[in-house]
Amino acid sequence: MLAAEGLDVAYGDFQVLWSAGIRVQEGEVVCLLGPNGAGKSTLMNTLSGLLKPRGGHVEFRGKRIDGVPPHEIVGEGLAHVLERRRLFPYLTVRENLLLGAHHPEARPRREESLRWVEGIFPFLTDRQKQLAHTLSGGQQQMVAIARGLMARPRCLMIDEPFLGLAPKVVQDIGAVIQQINREGITIVFIEQNVELALRLAHRGYVLESGRVILEGPSADLLQSNEVKRIFLGG
């Protein structure tokens, strides 16, 4: 469904990704692992079109999307929830959600989508008029995911959905990720906690210093000595 190959990405002269790539099948949950600064966010931002790769290519559902601007990529069915939620802080929860369905493919189904995400996150119903920046961190993360879902994506990418959240909220969001995956949405997410990530994902990719150094089914990665070396310093 989503395939990236040979991605070279740089900020100015500072190259961050070196021939990186991933492949995601329809219906999968895939996680991107790696230490701080490994280039996970950079990779995801390249897939959603926020960054243009210097080399390599990205295909989504059989279509080349590298070089396509981000506001068009979301219309193809690939949505992206940015690191640190990035809600529109001075707009209401409802306005944030509506904007999730701004693109022409999703807009006609907006009200229906709104009811759908309210079913997934019931607290949304009472918070419609609240300004986004006044929500708690966990609620903001849920609104961010809900906003991503409003785009009616076939594949949803989430950058560090669990960052800074209480254990209870981490569990809730993990359950939501599984639920929406069961509804047929392919998931790619970034997480630094190996155990947590691999419990949720079918497969994982490990990035280090801008290179994909390891990939495989979650069970294999959990056993891997390489993963232990990188993440547990063992």
Partner: peptide
């Protein structure tokens, strides 16, 4: 208006706005 909302969204977070399908 929808366009007005998109304008505000762009002002508040350009990248997030682009990911909503807004031509910033």
């Amino acid at each position: 208006t929808e366009t007005g909302l998109a304008l505000q969204a762009t002002a508040q977070d350009r990248q997030a706005a682009a990911l909503m399908g807004i031509n910033t």
